[in-house]
């Protein structure tokens, strides 16, 4: 005997009204992702309260002014005008003319960006071969290598800077070591308290951090693509240039941003190993909020710095056509 299904057949159908459900359930059933946001809401709230609100407050503050002990809350562009005020008196920095009345912040910003760029380049040059080594050469004990790379990321930044101070100091390890070996007979003074010391220290501090994203993007590359490239006649070097490098671009670009953005605002490293010549924009922000007690101007400097960083990052992503690279990485 066969019971043939009768779609919509009258025999099977009974007048059934949909069971009444509370509105909340109905909405959640209709839009299941609302549950996701419900779960995330405490975290989002915390981030709003502690990230977005403070940054907005900082932004607002940059339009106020400091009168010795109290803050004048009338809206004004005076802080920005102060930073960018033109003047006939031209200050030169590395031959670059700055026709500003108070050139210190702009010069420090330019200098910080230049130093950060240098750090980023050094970091990528050091980290990429290491990531490549770990992705393609290390076969056994991969976890050991990963952990060896990871430890420095999580161990005190301050201590690593401190270590470099000991290394590079006038009475430091390098000088005493070289003198001890008889290579030099008096300490090298140029080691510490200059931009180079800051760049070395920052590069060392960030390089471990940079390996992981590059490593992940190299590790993700389908090995058969590399075999295909060889099969199609690429020499190892060509294969690297045509296949490996483009496919690891998303990780490399992420790394560039991950290193560049935070180092522009770094202030611990310049404060410890930079001396007066190696100070960066972060140091002047710290001074403005601290000893100089001019929070509004400090806020304005912060805003200018963030805006500059954002502009540079956008320009960079546009130049490398990041959308296309990312879309390619998805496949």
């Amino acid at each position: 005997m066969s019971d043939i299904a009768e779609p919509g057949g009258a025999a099977m159908r009974e007048p059934s009204s949909p069971p009444a459900k509370p509105l909340r359930t109905r909405i959640l059933q209709r839009f299941p992702w609302l549950r996701g946001y419900l779960l995330m809401s405490p975290t989002i709230a915390v981030m709003l309260a502690m990230l977005i609100v403070p940054v907005v407050a900082l932004f607002v503050r940059s339009f106020w002014t400091q009168n010795v002990f109290e803050i004048d809350t009338t809206f004004t562009l005076r802080n920005y005008a102060y930073i960018f005020e033109l003047s006939d008196r031209i200050t030169y920095w590395f031959g670059i003319p700055f026709p500003l009345a108070n050139p210190v912040y702009v010069i420090l910003l330019v200098k910080s960006i230049a130093m950060s760029l240098a750090v980023t380049v050094v970091v990528i040059l050091l980290a990429y071969p290491m990531a490549y080594f770990m992705a393609f050469r290390v076969k056994r004990h991969k976890m050991l290598w990963l952990i060896l790379i990871t430890i420095p990321i999580w161990t005190s930044y301050l201590l690593r800077v401190f270590a470099w101070k000991i290394m590079l100091g006038f009475n430091g390890v390098i000088n005493s070591g070289l003198m001890n070996l008889g290579i030099i007979d008096k300490p090298l003074e140029f080691l510490l308290y200059n931009p180079i010391a800051v760049i070395i220290t920052l590069a060392h501090a960030w390089v471990a951090f940079a390996i992981l994203p590059i490593y992940v993007s190299l590790e993700k590359i389908d090995r058969s693509l590399l075999e295909a490239a060889t099969d199609l006649g690429d020499k190892p070097w060509e294969r690297f240039w045509h296949v490996t490098l483009p496919l690891s671009a998303p990780g490399t670009i992420a790394t560039i941003l991950l290193v560049f953005i935070p180092t522009v605002g770094d202030y611990v490293t310049p404060a410890l190993v930079g001396g007066s010549g190696g100070s960066m924009i972060g140091n002047s922000i710290q001074l403005l909020f601290g000893r100089q007690n001019d929070a509004p101007l400090g806020s304005a400097v912060s805003v200018v710095m963030m805006a500059t960083i954002t502009a540079i990052v956008c320009l960079f992503l546009w130049l490398v056509d990041y959308r296309k690279i990312r879309a390619r990485g998805m496949n």
Binding site: D3, A5, P7, G8, G9, M12, R13, E14, S16
Partner: peptide
């Protein structure tokens, strides 16, 4: 009894009775 399940405009199960 006349069971149906729609996901958006997709009728995954369309008026099934047995």
């Amino acid at each position: 009894r006349s069971v149906a399940k729609h996901f958006g405009s997709v009728r995954a199960v369309d008026d099934v009775s047995f």
